[in-house]
Design a protein around this nucleic acid. Structure first.
Lengths: 166, 166
DNA sequence: TGTTTTTATCTCAACGTTGAGATTATCAAC
DNA sequence: GTTGATAATCTCAACGTTGAGATAAAAACA
């Protein structure tokens, strides 16, 4: 059976037969892009239902899963989120105004700013994350679990081959 | 070997052992999200080198692969790009100013606006697409091709199971 | 024919991100 | 110690997208 990407590749093969041999990366990347769109939009809606932006949810979960004392520097959050410094500053500003996190300036290096999850931030994170996982499960309700796990393992190999290690 | 997502899942398992059983979708979705970020950023740079925005490149390729007469309605482009109507209007405005496409109002239905690739648009599309494919190949230079094709097929099954058909 | 509903596109303010530059602090070398 | 380089964060204008509403045409129905 054919999906949307098969159709796209078929169109290219017809219109640009000269590039047919170079389309194999498209088969993977286009599907990744498509799935990312669908999942991101869904995740955005889940977070929005709790009054939290997509990027803010990213910061919340990064802080919570980091464990006690639920504190990370702005720089660490920036790398984890794969966004620019301006985006992190903006996110922290708004999250601080909402009482989700607080900026802590302490320690020897006074350039660094530590971001700490507040008690309220913890509560919100737990609530949103629960909905988030339920949403993921709902999205995959019609998908064979073995397929999902197999795909996840293939994707890990791809990421490793690309040098995406911790 | 562990990738970044393995680390993330490990953190969750430690900090929130109660949700461990619900993390299997994260293994796939988080990797899709991560790969999408990397690939999108790279594709953006490729397009930018030709003075074209990421979204504009999307419109250009959609028009070219549609074949003669290289004309699609705004609505068709909107669906293909998975963005809102405002985004398409904005893209077409700028692309028309650059001479890449032209709006054609003809036919029986005067609500519809047809977007046609100009000769200049064709030239630019060919150039950017060539670089785009070369960039894809470069990205995957260190990745086993069988793995890529296997992953692409798994992803197709996932998309089909999610109902993503043409 | 006249009215209502639906469809296609455009408008525009609000929003988050980018990316270059500014600021301030630390580290390294002399 | 002073200088220069590096590092961490913040500032801010520009940019593309969103999403609700407006506009206008076509289709459906009375």
């Amino acid at each position: 059976m054919s999906d949307v990407v098969d159709v796209i590749v078929g169109q290219w093969a017809k219109e640009r037969p000269d590039v047919t041999d170079d389309l194999w990366p498209v088969q993977m990347f286009a599907r990744i892009q498509r799935l990312a769109r669908v999942v991101d939009k869904s995740a955005k809606d889940t977070a929005a239902a709790h009054g939290v932006e997509h990027g803010e949810f990213d910061v919340l979960t990064t802080l919570q899963r980091s464990g006690p004392p639920y504190t990370l520097t702005a720089g660490a959050l920036l790398k984890a989120s794969m966004v620019t410094s301006g985006a992190i500053t903006n996110r922290i500003d708004k999250m601080e105004a909402k009482g989700l996190v607080e900026r802590v300036r302490e320690g020897t290096d006074r350039r660094t700013v530590k971001i700490r999850l507040t008690d309220h931030g913890h509560d919100v994170t737990r609530a949103v994350f629960a909905d988030h996982l339920a949403n993921y499960a709902r999205l995959l309700a019609t998908v064979d679990r073995d397929l999902v796990e197999r795909t996840a393992e293939d994707l890990r190999e791809v990421l490793l081959a690309l040098g995406d290690t911790a």
